[in-house]
């Protein structure tokens, strides 16, 4: 990547929990195991004598799984951690997510309808939780992934209380 051009909108300031890196690493390992198992079965069951693209695929697929393992375990978690940012200001909730494709989402506190805290299986392993801030628009949902549980709960509570105070009925 060349020197990153200036971001189109202001960057949120706060990082996720560092445990998020290890959660993403775990996800990468699980994904690699799944793909690896599928490719192993395919290579064992389909003989090279079938012809067509099969001889090529027999070595291409394992290589692809290896590349995936390096990217998903060794690179992506760290890039994601560097990219992901979030911030709650006096008026807005603001996130930046993604790694190759970056998405900023911005929602004013006055338009928040509900705030959800969810904990997936892996998240529970690492003591993490995600906050989802929902608005009247199906596309206007802010998701802050992988915060420490205590932080997530405090943020959700704070947002819900403030949203109730300044709720703008004109959604």
């Amino acid at each position: 990547m060349s020197a990153a051009p200036a971001p189109p909108v202001s960057e949120p300031a706060w990082s996720l929990s560092r445990s998020a890196i290890w959660l993403w690493v775990t996800e990468g390992i699980v994904g690699t195991l799944v793909y690896g198992a599928i490719v192993t079965v395919a290579v064992l069951l389909v003989p090279a004598s079938v012809g067509g693209p099969v001889p090529v695929l027999r070595w291409l697929l394992p290589v692809l799984v290896g590349v995936y393992a390096v990217v998903a375990i060794g690179i992506r978690p760290w890039v994601r951690y560097r990219v992901h940012r979030w911030e709650v200001t006096a008026e807005t909730v603001h996130t930046l997510t993604g790694w190759l494709t970056r998405t900023w989402t911005l929602v004013p506190v006055a338009r928040i309808q509900t705030v959800d805290v969810t904990r997936g299986v892996l998240q529970q392993l690492y003591g993490l939780a995600s906050v989802a801030v929902l608005t009247a628009s199906s596309q206007g949902t802010v998701r802050v992934p992988h915060l420490e549980v205590a932080v997530a709960e405090r943020v959700a509570e704070d947002l819900a209380r403030r949203a109730e105070q300044v709720r703008d009925e004109a959604t």
Binding site: S2, A4, P5, P8, V9, L100, T101, R102, T103, W104, T105, L106, V107, P108, R111, T135, A136, S137, Q139, G140, V142, A170, T171
Partner: peptide
């Protein structure tokens, strides 16, 4: 007043092209 939020999206190539 219709706006309840903004999403700004940049793919890798969009970032390069500004």
């Amino acid at each position: 007043r219709a706006v309840v939020g903004w999403t700004v999206r940049q793919t890798f190539f969009q970032r390069r092209a500004g």
